[in-house]
């Protein structure tokens, strides 16, 4: 975990010589990608739960989505800072990615509301799983919708000129990406282990008393 943090923080920004604000890219994009596949993983586990009916998938799905939401929030924050640095405003509806993440963030916050308002049990597991599946269906659909919405909200389409990535920049990006993925994976394992231990201990306590 320490290694992953070190890599994300110190290896990643080692070059990127043109335009300092470009450096946010190395943390923003990997985090966004990680959030996506956390959501994807959560939905996949949810599907397995519905398919196989094994209870352990419930915790796995929940933890993955929890992770995804944290990374989603980080994407929003770093994206907002990036927008401020390069366009001078804290929020811009021009950036599809940010708007999409806002939608997803709201959606997954609702997921937690749902989860916490249901009594524990197989029914809660399945309800959350169904809602998690809706989430992954929502991602491409809202992406499309936001793309389309652009041209009536802003008739002049905003084109962000993406400078071609050079070799070292691409390498840095890959390292950063790997580091963030690793970080997410380690956090996922740790939280999952904690949640499982918590559940086991509760069961043990009931057995003993």
């Amino acid at each position: 975990m320490g290694l992953a943090l070190l890599m994300a923080l110190f290896v990643a920004p080692e070059d990127a010589d043109q335009g300092v604000s470009q450096r946010i890219f190395y943390i923003h994009v990997p985090i966004a990608l990680t959030a996506y596949y956390c959501f994807g993983l959560g939905a996949w586990k949810a599907l397995r739960l519905l398919w196989r009916g094994e209870e352990r998938y419930d915790l796995e799905s929940y933890v993955a989505i929890h992770q995804g939401t944290i990374f989603g929030a980080l994407t929003l924050i770093t994206g907002s800072i990036w927008a401020k640095a390069s366009w001078g405003v804290w929020w811009t509806w021009d950036s599809n990615q940010l708007v999409l993440f806002l939608t997803l963030f709201l959606f997954y916050c609702a997921y937690f509301m749902l989860r916490f308002s249901l009594p524990e049990g197989p029914r809660r597991a399945r309800s959350s799983a169904v809602y998690a599946l809706f989430g992954v269906a929502l991602i491409p659909v809202s992406f499309l919708a936001i793309r389309l919405a652009e041209d009536f909200i802003h008739p002049t389409t905003f084109t962000r000129e993406g400078p071609q990535m050079t070799g070292t920049m691409f390498a840095t990006f890959c390292v950063a990406w790997a580091a963030v993925t690793l970080l997410a994976y380690v956090l996922y394992r740790v939280e999952l282990a904690g949640k499982r231990a918590d559940r086991d201990l509760r069961e043990l306590r009931e057995l003993l008393s």
Binding site: T103, A110, S142, A145
Partner: peptide, 9 residues
Amino acid sequence: LLFLPLAIP
């Protein structure tokens, strides 16, 4: 809360 994010598209 559950419905509005889904209704955005």
